[in-house]
Each structure stands twice: as C-alpha cells, then as structure tokens.
Design a protein around this nucleic acid. Sequence first.
DNA 1: TGAGATCTCGGTCGGTTGTCCGACTTTAAA
DNA 2: TTTAAAGTCGGACAACCGACCGAGATCTCA
Lengths: 234, 234
Amino acid sequence: MQEWWREFPDARPSGAHDRAGSRSPVAYVKAAEREQQIVGAAVNVLSEVGVPATTLRAVAAEAGISLGTLHYVFPSKDLLLQSVLTTVIDEIAATLRAGLELDKGVEHALRAGVLNFWNRLVESRLGLQIMQYELATYSLRAEGAGGLAHLQYERYTTLVTRFCEQAAQAAGERCAVGFDVLGRISLAVVDGLILQHVANPDSERSHRDLNHALDMLVMLADPQPVARVRGAAK
Amino acid sequence: MQEWWREFPDARPSGAHDRAGSRSPVAYVKAAEREQQIVGAAVNVLSEVGVPATTLRAVAAEAGISLGTLHYVFPSKDLLLQSVLTTVIDEIAATLRAGLELDKGVEHALRAGVLNFWNRLVESRLGLQIMQYELATYSLRAEGAGGLAHLQYERYTTLVTRFCEQAAQAAGERCAVGFDVLGRISLAVVDGLILQHVANPDSERSHRDLNHALDMLVMLADPQPVARVRGAAK
DNA sequence: TGAGATCTCGGTCGGTTGTCCGACTTTAAA
DNA sequence: TTTAAAGTCGGACAACCGACCGAGATCTCA
C-alpha cells in the first residue's frame, strides 16, 4: 500500500510521524469537553488579538482542532462568543468569591476584595479585561445578543451588592446608602480605573488612585455598628 | 432627455434636483473641507452600527461621495478612525468647556459639570459613548495606534483635573487630595456609570447613582476655603 | 459483533472588505 | 489661453471570513 496521503499533505493525520504501524487515532472527545477546550482557546486568542481580529480559524488552531470540528461544536461565531462571555463571568465571579473575607466588616471586605481583584485579575491579565469591554460593546451592537451586556453587568453588580450586604450582616453593621447603590458605585469606580490603567498602564499611580477611591467608597458607605442585632432572620 | 441616473440611483449627483438643463457639476470641495465632512459622516455611522460593523462604503454613502473620493482623502481606514477619535475628543472637550461655571467653588463645578455632561453627551447620545469605548479598545489592539487610547484618557483626565484646579483657585479653596487624583477618580466613576447605563439604560437609577457618586466625590475632595489668599502667583 | 450515533477532517463557496487604479472633470496658476 | 494640479468617480481585485458539506473514522450500545 502506498502512502495515499502524500497527495493531500494537509490530510495527513497529525500522528503520522509516529513509527510506521502505530496507528495514531484521531482524538475523539465528547462535545461537552470540546466546548470548554474551545472556549479556553478562544479566551486566549481573544485576550491577545482582541475580538474584532479573532477568527474562527485562529481559535481552531489554538485549540489544535480543525475548522470543521469547531463548527460542529459551535455552529456560529455568536454562539462561541456568548459561551466565552458567560464562562469568563462565572470564572471571575468564582475567583472573587474564593479570596474573600466577609466577617470583618464592610470596610475590610471592600478594601480586601477590590485589591485582591485588582492584583489577580487586572494587573496580571490585562488582555482579559480589555476583552470584556470588547465583548460588552460587541453584544450591545449585535441585535440578538444585546442582552449579554445587560446580563454581564447585572451579574457583577448583584455580586458586589451581595458581598457588601453579607459583610455588613456578618459584622453587624449598617451602611449610609443602600447596598445596591454601594455595589454599583463600587463597580463603577473600579471599572473606570481599569479603563485608565489599560489605556495608560502605571501600577504605582493605579494603586494610589485605587486606595483613594477605596477611602472614598468607605466614606460613602459609612459603616457603623448597629446598637443591637435584633431578629437576625436566618 | 431621460433621467439617465435612474438606472444608477446611487450615482445621482446631489445637485440633480436642479431644474433640467442646469448641468449638475460634480461637487468640488477642498480636501480640508472634505475631511471634516467625511469625519462627520463617519461619526454618524460609527455611532449607529459600531466600529467593527462600520465599512468605508457605508461612510462614503453617508457622506454622499464615492468610495474612491473617500480613499483619496483618507488613504487608509486607520487614518480615518484616528481622525474621528481626535475630532470627537476635541468636540466633547469643547462642549464641556462651554457649559461650565468655575467661579462657584469645587463642589458646584463638579456637580454642575458632571450633570451637564451627562445630560448633553450621555443621555441623548448613547451611541457616541459606546463608540468611544470601541475606539479606545480598537486603538489598544492596533499596533501603531496604541497611543490613541493613551492620548484619549490623557486628554480627559488633564481636562477634568484642570477644571477642578481652576474652580478651586477661583473660589479660594483647597482640596484634601491632589487635583490629579480628584480628576482621575471623577472621570473613573463617571466612566463606570456610563458603562452601566449603556448596558442597562435606566435614567432614574443612573441619576440616583450619579448624585450619590457626586456626594462621594465631594467628600473626597472636601473643599475648604483657605484662610488667606496669599501670593496668588499670576 | 454490527449498526447507528457521534465526532473529525479538509475543502469549498458566496459574500464582504480594504485597497487601488485609470479616466475624466474641475480648479488654479502661469 | 494653456497647462499642471487637485478632485471625483466607478470599477476591479486580491484577500479573508464565516458558514457549510460530504466522507471517513471512532465510539456506543444492544
């Protein structure tokens, strides 16, 4: 038998360099696992080159699969981007939840939470943050996917709001403004500082601004211990 | 004579509505004027459909010129987008400067300035704001145009900083933090609230948050009248 | 074991985009 | 008036992208 594939060099199985006789079977993976593999590859590409410059071919190459397989798992580009956005949101939310201390009052939760977020998800993963703004604006323009940006900020604001609420309850404190307002404004100031940081990276200046912003947020919240903890319903 | 242009509706000269017989000469415009005409059309298209979906053909159609003429004035798309970004920055800066009262102290300047900006450039021109975030991220990705996002935020921060400084000096006040910090954080919180507003438009909530944010900014600035105005250099 | 479902691959196709060109028209300088 | 420069136009072209297909390989379950 001749090497039939020599006429179609690109058709050569990826494992053909193995010693003759050892068939290198095509990797068969469940679609569910493929999904997260592809999403991971997509996040890499998106973080590096940006949303507009990201092609399905680049994602497929990064994932080590063919364009056909990619299309088999994600029939359209929108579906892939939607999956990427929701995945990233969940991942960031989980990372935030992980390094959190909600038993030392609102001020400590706010300062520790924001600084932890900044060091773990901004300073070291700038491309990821830019990608989120790109995906947000992208979904705002896309007719059908306009709800994703809504969902994105809805998730983040409720997340921060809930954190503040839990921190206050755990430490027996009350705040001068509603937790929803506190959550949205906290998110807003951090968001704005991220934008300034990606546009003009300067860790020293950013940390200085961040600390001033945190002082300011604490003044807004003005957490005070409640006289008595009464009726702590569950 | 038949209406020859009916077969090429888009080729109809803009002056064809003149009475028959009057040759409708091709509009000849200096390149300098063409530039701002094209930039204006580009802003319209960009605000409506977004940066990634904006094509040179759409811009040319909006401007009422041919693709060739567009390419004659702006040899590349990057050049056009750069011109758009700088133009919009200048325009917004001018609008801000126009409706400003810098003689009633830092608090008044901050509140009036932010609310004026919000009502004139956010509430009624949402697409323009989204476009700016798109252009910022776009220039961050583009190799050669990476400096535009830098310039964009540099301009805005120095603008706000200078406003605060002038307001303080005019009213004889001092602030608890540096004017640069105050300017950057003010811009950050407004930026963040814009993002939340475009992702989930709700004028009532936005205005409520905005007022709380302004209270917070005023607390941060903590403007106090100086005892004596001494050595008012210049 | 065998038959259907699942998964993978390379190639292709229609459509779009940015860039460019040659010919023509108008303006402005000589 | 003559002539070069500036401006305009429609068309064309190469490149690229997303979507799609048919055929084959692999897995799964009865």
